[in-house]
Design a protein around this nucleic acid. Sequence first.
DNA 1: GTCCCTTTGTGAAGCGATGCACAAAGTGAA
DNA 2: TTCACTTTGTGCATCGCTTCACAAAGGGAC
Lengths: 235, 235
Amino acid sequence: MIRRPSHARERGIPEATVARLPLYLRALNGMSERGLATVSSEDLASAAGVNSAKLRKDLSHLGSYGTRGVGYDVEYLIYQISRELGLTQDWAVAIVGVGNLGRALANYGGFVSRGFRVAALFDADPEVVGDHIAGLNVEHIDDLEAVIRRRGVSIVVLATPAAAAQQVADRVIAAGVTSILNFAPVVLTVPEGVDIRKVDLSIELQILAFHEQRKTDRMSGGPAMAEEWPEAVDL
Amino acid sequence: MIRRPSHARERGIPEATVARLPLYLRALNGMSERGLATVSSEDLASAAGVNSAKLRKDLSHLGSYGTRGVGYDVEYLIYQISRELGLTQDWAVAIVGVGNLGRALANYGGFVSRGFRVAALFDADPEVVGDHIAGLNVEHIDDLEAVIRRRGVSIVVLATPAAAAQQVADRVIAAGVTSILNFAPVVLTVPEGVDIRKVDLSIELQILAFHEQRKTDRMSGGPAMAEEWPEAVDL
DNA sequence: GTCCCTTTGTGAAGCGATGCACAAAGTGAA
DNA sequence: TTCACTTTGTGCATCGCTTCACAAAGGGAC
């Protein structure tokens, strides 16, 4: 059996590094398309929007894949990062909830590009069950467990209304799924060993609003409009 | 002029805390609807999916709004967090790019709920300009600057193809916008003082795939399928 | 082979966030 | 008033990530 270089920490890549690897991969793919053979940490870092020291440390966690004085071989690095991220196999993804957002996700091309294949769509509304979206038949949520098992789905995207999300999560987890991407604005409770990632548009906007408010406050010279909590309310 | 309590760090809330405030706010709104008057840090923390020490430290950055032995007044805390996040005013948001995703965002209800109002939709495709989506007329991208200024848009959501995103960002920034939520899979370069937040479905999936691969590797007892880099490729 | 130049990989310091553990502060009962 | 109990606010140790700065390693010219 062939092992990876011993100085690469066997199974210990920092979470922050993992979150940046897809960024590097995308930048490298662009360079590959433009025909670049090698790239320096400086150039790759700036294409990915990080500084070069961070990039080098990140890559050093995968192994020693660069050449001093030269840089990194673009194709080789693409292969190594892809392998580390698990993109050399392909993953069957199911989308639950085919409302506006679910439809948009199903049709989103960037999805399929790298290792991911939308393998099933589910909804509870009899009105949309049976529709064809992005070449797929929308299945009824009653068949969730059976279809997940049959098609080997390992990642589920939740695009249901908030009220349904926890219940659906429980069911897909019971069916063996351990990776969930949640678009519903609720905090999901899941057993240990299940990975959840959350995307919440409303939260992102609120964070932007906080900084935006700060910027405008600063312009107008302080919190002149601060108001007291209305006296009428009982404290 | 009324000031906030002096022990609250005047303009110094940690970024990690800001990112969690919307979570607390959502949990509090649920409690308010269920008629709860007060809540302990323990209960609120568990509703928001964090531990109670973190919650208390986060809230302490806003001021001392709890009562020892009792907990926090739900309505009062909602008010304080809303004010800190800048949700007591409402923000005009523009969505650029009315493809699948842009449409879904325009129709997304959770948007409007708290302080945000979709004030304009833009697209470059003459085919969709003039369409009515979620009660709004889709405007041509040529009118971007004029409409942004006229309607006081301060936050822009980018849902354009990747190739157009940087160019659109440059234009909205030139028009005075300093907060952007970017759904396009590109690294945007922006001047200092402009806040960008990024949402990238593909990256989220890749992170999940990494962990999923790890879990299955562990089950099958090691990286038995690891392959050498094909010899044919020049290194 | 030797020298110079470039670029990687990493030790170490710095920085911010997390979580523990407890003193301080409040409630309610007697 | 005093006492027992609850819950906040925070000092402090710890942890993980970032950044600096440089030794080590490789390439190319001569």
